[in-house]
Amino acid sequence: MTGTRTRLAHTSQLDPGTRERIRALLDAAFEGDFGDEDFEHALGGMHALIHEDGELVAHGSVVQRRVLYRGRALRAGYVEAVAVRADRRRRGLGGLVMGALEGVVERAYVLGALSASAAGARLYEGRGWAAWGGPIGALSPAGPVRLAEEEGSTYVWFPPGGTLEDPAGRLDFDWRDGDVL
């Protein structure tokens, strides 16, 4: 990976051109299945940006979410918008992105969480992320709602020494527009 550079930056440190390049990378990587709300979900936290020879080739971000677990509101580092440019896949760049984001989670959050596609699950599982074994829900404007369609695809990761006492307990994530998770 000659000329590969990884940069961590908060959304506030991204100039408009960088944000446009991130969005273009995500649109291409998700083949048009990445909307404005999805992009909004990826903002407001830390971004891992990987450049090769000056070109953006991989991205991921981690944003703070609150997750209600057994009556406690926990700080969760929620991983969003992980993508690698199609011509650079299968070269370890996704792992570099995740390593940088896991470092943020380890230093700032109780746990990491993400919603994985079938294609992305292998990357996350290989890094120690595990599908949450219990019910998944959201704290909607009308109250808690179960999101059964997210069960089995919501993954969690704990910093060293971290865990939750009931791995089959319900996790309720804070509400947001668009796809909740």
Rank of each mutant, 00 (worst) to 15 (best):
62 V>K: 06
7 R>N: 03
110 V>R: 15
27 D>R: 13
49 L>Y: 00
138 A>P: 01
113 A>S: 12
37 E>L: 15
119 A>G: 03
145 V>A: 04
36 D>W: 08
2 T>D: 11
60 G>W: 05
73 A>C: 09
156 V>H: 03
166 D>W: 06
146 R>N: 02
112 G>R: 06
40 E>V: 14
27 D>Y: 02
132 W>Y: 02
68 L>V: 04
34 F>W: 07
155 Y>S: 00
129 W>H: 01
132 W>R: 06
1 M>E: 09
7 R>S: 09
164 L>R: 03
11 T>W: 07
108 A>K: 12
131 A>W: 14
110 V>H: 15
62 V>H: 05
118 A>H: 14
1 M>Y: 06
146 R>Y: 06
58 A>E: 06
154 T>R: 11
127 R>A: 06
83 A>C: 12
155 Y>E: 05
57 V>A: 01
78 Y>G: 04
45 G>C: 10
87 D>G: 10
169 G>K: 09
154 T>K: 06
23 R>V: 07
7 R>F: 02
101 L>A: 00
138 A>H: 07
72 R>A: 09
97 V>R: 06
8 L>G: 02
82 V>L: 10
157 W>I: 01
5 R>P: 00
60 G>N: 10
178 G>P: 08
80 E>A: 09
134 G>P: 13
153 S>Y: 05
177 D>H: 10
41 H>C: 05
114 L>F: 00
26 L>E: 07
162 G>V: 00
6 T>A: 12
5 R>H: 10
136 I>T: 02
35 G>E: 07
127 R>M: 12
116 A>C: 08
67 V>A: 08
17 G>C: 07
42 A>P: 09
64 Q>V: 11
152 G>W: 10
31 E>C: 09
131 A>N: 07
1 M>V: 13
70 R>S: 05
76 A>Y: 03
59 H>M: 10
104 V>K: 06
95 G>L: 12
141 P>W: 05
31 E>D: 15
171 L>S: 01
146 R>K: 09
87 D>N: 12
38 D>K: 10
42 A>T: 14
37 E>G: 02
88 R>L: 06
39 F>Y: 15
53 D>T: 12
82 V>S: 01
164 L>V: 12
46 M>G: 02
93 L>I: 04
164 L>F: 07
108 A>C: 14
27 D>T: 15
37 E>C: 06
154 T>E: 03
135 P>E: 14
